[in-house]
Design a binder for these strands. Structure first.
Length: 154
DNA sequence: AAAGAAATCAACCGCGGCACC
DNA sequence: CGGTGCCGCGGTTGATTTCTT
């Protein structure tokens, strides 16, 4: 559970958040709201940059975050959305309440990508391979088109 | 039972866009 | 109009845990 990073390897400082820091951050946000991360970091006086605080809040402390494994439904949805949108993790996360882009990205990179590939070969052996991101060749799709496609997928 | 591989989770980095001066 | 700085995003890394052999 609790993770004790011993690292401070090569001048680079990857340090786990302590419960105390979490508390300070949560408390500050409960008063001032999220945002203004630079200022927040400065005022809290933690040894953290604004980005770090933002990340911690968004991916971990923010209320409503769903823990635990992805359900089959969630995995299917992620797979479909990824096919549609590519690596637009924040957009995908927007469709999965309580799931963060980081977590979805992690899960994809370590598991679903492989699975999707296997599935692709097993079930669709004759379809020509699609380019990874069909939208990018002709420029960006509009947001509206995305929304429409996504709704169809759901 | 131990070593090595794979998976998971949390955190960092650089870049591009946008807002503001 | 150009420069500057903050923010959000996606890519990536590193530590730890779980699975396999």
């Amino acid at each position: 559970m609790g993770r004790a990073y011993t690292s401070s390897k090569g001048g680079f400082n990857r340090v786990a958040w302590t419960p105390h820091e979490d508390k300070r951050l949560t408390n500050y946000i409960s008063i001032h709201g999220p945002g203004k991360w630079e200022r927040l970091a400065k005022e809290l006086g933690l040894n953290r940059c604004g980005k770090s605080c933002r990340l911690r809040w968004l991916n971990y402390l923010r209320p409503g975050i769903k823990r635990g494994n992805f359900s089959k439904d969630e995995e299917d949805l992620i797979t479909r959305l990824h096919k549609l949108l590519g690596n637009k993790w924040s957009q995908i996360a927007g469709r999965l309440p309580g799931r963060t882009d980081n977590k979805i990205k992690n899960h994809w990179n370590t598991y679903l990508a492989k699975k999707a590939k296997e599935l692709h070969f097993m079930t669709l052996p004759r379809l020509h391979m699609e380019k990874e991101c069909p939208a990018s060749s002709t420029g960006e799709k509009t947001g509206e088109q995305d929304t429409q496609l996504v709704n169809e997928a759901m």
